Simulated assay, not measured.
Amino acid sequence: MVTQTTPVRIGVLGTHSTGKTTLLKRIEMELRGHGLTVARTGRLAKRAAAIGLPKMQRHTEVSTEWIIVQGVADELAAVAQGAQVVLADRAALDALAYYCAALEFREEQLDGLESERLRLLVATQTAKYDLLLSTELDPDMPVDPSHDYDPHYRFLVDRHVHALLDDDRIAHQPVTSDPDSHRRAIDQVLEFCLAKAAARTP
C-alpha cells in the first residue's frame, strides 16, 4: 500500500571515507529509538561496479547518470513502502561531484550540453531533500589501508562537492570529522524529524 504521508528526506554527500555511512547509521538508530520508521538507501557505487560500470576516477556520464537515477528509484521505493524518514547515502549531487572530479583528475572536459543536462537532473532531486548533510575531508584522518584510494582524487571530490553546493546556493549542514560536529548533525536531524512527526499526529 502506498503511503499518503510525505516522508522526511535527508541526504548525505561528501568524498569517500569521510564518515557518511557511519553518520547515517547513527541517525537511523536514533530515529528508530524514537519510534520512527526509517529507510536507508546506499551502496550505489558498489552496485554500479557490479554491473560493469566504472567508478571513482574512471566515472563516465553513463555511470554518473545510473547512480543518480538508481538513487532516485531507491528513495521512491522507500517512500512507497511507507517510511517516515528516508536517509539517502549519497544524495544526487554527490554523483555529479564524483564525475566532475574524475574529469579533472583525467584532465578532460565535460561537454557543455551534457553538463547542463546532468545539473538539471540533479537539481530536480536536490529540491526534494528536507535536509542535506555534507561531510568534509580531514586529511589528517587515517583511511582504511584495505581501500586503494587515490588521495588526489579524494581531495578533488571534496572540492567539487562543496563547489557545487556553493555555486547553486544549496542549503546544507557541514559535518566535520569532529565528534561534536557529528553529534550536532544527529541532534538537528532528530529535532527536525520529531517535530515533523508531531505535526502529523492528529
Results as ranks from 00 to 15, higher is better:
V12C: 03
G14Q: 07
G14V: 11
T15H: 06
T15W: 04
T15E: 01
H16W: 11
S17E: 14
T18V: 13
T18Y: 05
T18L: 04
T18W: 04
T18H: 06
T21N: 07
T21R: 10
T21P: 08
L23Y: 10
L24A: 05
K25G: 07
I27P: 04
I27K: 01
I27C: 04
M29S: 13
M29P: 00
E30P: 01
L31K: 01
L31H: 00
R32C: 12
G33C: 10
G35E: 00
T37Q: 00
V38L: 04
A39K: 00
R40Y: 00
R40T: 12
T41P: 02
T41A: 02
T41Y: 06
G42M: 09
G42R: 09
G42I: 14
G42T: 11
R43V: 06
R43Y: 10
L44S: 09
L44Q: 07
L44D: 03
L44A: 11
L44K: 09
A45G: 14
A45R: 14
A45K: 13
A45V: 15
A45F: 06
K46V: 02
R47D: 05
R47T: 07
R47G: 08
A48Y: 02
A48P: 07
A48H: 03
I51Y: 01
G52M: 10
G52K: 08
G52S: 09
L53R: 06
P54D: 04
P54W: 08
K55T: 15
K55N: 12
M56A: 14
Q57K: 10
Q57R: 12
Q57T: 11
R58V: 02
R58N: 08
H59I: 01
V62H: 08
V62K: 12
S63W: 06
S63E: 05
S63D: 07
T64G: 04
E65T: 09
W66G: 08
W66A: 12
W66H: 14
I68C: 15
I68S: 08
V69R: 14
Q70F: 07
Q70T: 15
Q70P: 03
G71K: 11
A73G: 02
A73C: 03
A73H: 06
D74S: 13
E75W: 08
L76Y: 07
L76F: 06
A78M: 03
V79P: 00
V79K: 04
Q81N: 06
G82R: 06
G82W: 01
G82A: 12
G82L: 05
A83T: 01
A83E: 01
Q84P: 03
V86H: 00
A88N: 13
A88E: 09
A88D: 13
D89I: 11
R90I: 05
A91H: 12
A91T: 10
A91R: 04
A92R: 12
L93G: 14
D94K: 12
D94Y: 10
Y98H: 15
Y99E: 08
Y99L: 15
C100E: 13
A101D: 13
A101I: 06
L103V: 03
E104W: 09
E104L: 13
E104Y: 08
F105V: 01
E107P: 02
E107R: 15
E107Q: 15
E107I: 07
E108A: 13
E108Y: 05
L110S: 02
L110C: 03
L110N: 01
D111E: 11
D111I: 04
G112M: 10
G112E: 14
G112R: 12
L113N: 10
